[in-house]
Design a protein around this nucleic acid. Structure first.
Lengths: 136, 136
DNA sequence: AGAAGAATGGTACTTTAGTATGAGCCTCTA
DNA sequence: TAGAGGCTCATACTAAAGTACCATTCTTCT
């Protein structure tokens, strides 16, 4: 946010400097003032839109960064995380096993440890908790 | 979107008209041009931010409107929808029954018809499908 | 090399989930 | 008023999900 303000200030200064030259051109006597102002207005209009969009993107990326740290804090392994994603996509243990080329008992083991680590009683609760923690 | 463009056009015209008067003031000879331009730049900057935010809000509201229509299309009743929300929050059938003051078999009936209507095989899949359809 | 942890899988058992079917009750509408 | 649809509940099953314990293999780190 501090960076955008700085960039913004520099832009204003640059445009003011630009005006310093165009000021003499105005004295020649035509209606180019309106044009310059219109262009500047449009420019800042789109700058506003751009900055707003970027700040929204950044905030969503920040929540993504939290993800990985949370996963590490909970000591969820890669395989377990894969299983978690598969659960969230609505697959059964058997289907997950087929997708990852594993046996169903292996999936059950992963699921059980996942439920422990997420402090959930059911896979549906695990999905809810994981989404609340921005893990999914 | 068409409305915002119209409003935008009117604003530009208004400012151009305002300039028509200030033009004569400039001929008196001071550096107020920079000030006017700076104010206009700022104004349009914030207009850009405002319009961008509003359009984002509208798009999120639109997806909310789709919800209700989709629910009606799938012929999901109020009770079934309550159960669906409870499922998505990670509750078991027994817990849902307690929450809604119903018997577990009633919940099972609702869940079964929900799975049929959502074309899901499991409750986890129902959650996934419902979220994809913006029902949840 | 050896400990630690991740990944894999098996057996046996308990608990939920989900299906099928039938039935009673209520409300709204043709 | 009769039927349709929604809501409730029960029984009897079958199928998943989840737990507990144990064992093996494979990295990885010290």
């Amino acid at each position: 946010m501090k960076k955008t303000i700085l960039v913004f200030a520099v832009l204003i200064l640059a445009i003011l400097a630009l005006l310093h030259f165009s000021k003499y051109a105005i004295l020649v006597g035509d209606s180019s003032v309106e044009w310059i102002i219109a262009v500047i207005a449009l420019l800042f209009f789109f700058i506003g839109i751009y900055i707003n969009k970027r700040s929204l993107k950044k905030s969503s990326e920040t929540s993504n960064e939290i993800n990985i740290k949370t996963i590490e804090k909970l000591e969820i392994s890669k395989r377990e995380y894969e299983v978690l994603k598969a659960i969230a996509s609505g697959l059964s243990n058997k289907e997950i096993a087929a997708q990852l080329f594993l046996s169903e008992s292996t999936i059950k083991t992963h699921v059980s440890s996942l439920l422990l680590k997420l402090n959930a009683k059911r896979r549906t609760q695990a999905i809810q908790i994981a989404k609340e923690m921005n893990i999914l």
